[in-house]
Design a protein around this nucleic acid. Sequence first.
DNA 1: ATTCTGACGTGGG
DNA 2: CCCCACGCCAGAA
Length: 113
Amino acid sequence: MNQDNKNFFQKVYEVAKHIPYGRVTSYGAIAKYLGAARSARMVGWAMNGAGSMPEVPAHRVVNKIGLLTGKHHFDGTNLMQQLLESEGIQVIDNQIQDFETHFWDPFVELGGE
DNA sequence: ATTCTGACGTGGG
DNA sequence: CCCCACGCCAGAA
């Protein structure tokens, strides 16, 4: 119950930590991987708490279309974009270019469980 | 306690 | 193609 809930957030952090450099994923992908495909919003909320987790690259998590919808939550206004560009990801107007190419699927990388 | 919003996603018109 | 509504859960007013 509640414990599961806590575990859910923890899982989100773990998956996010497993995102390799220069890769990005979507909230829905993580949510689905955790079995909460309908609670993709919770993944974003979990990222909110990830602010205390330096090992959790929240900037590598975007919505399913590769849009940096949560850049407003970062320290700066374009910090998220800068971080992604720093990893070799081209971002234009909050939109990741070649999103599918940089997309990191937990089901594939972690072995869909 | 009630209501709304929010870092999403999917479906319908 | 664009716009609207619903579901999901949690937090803030």
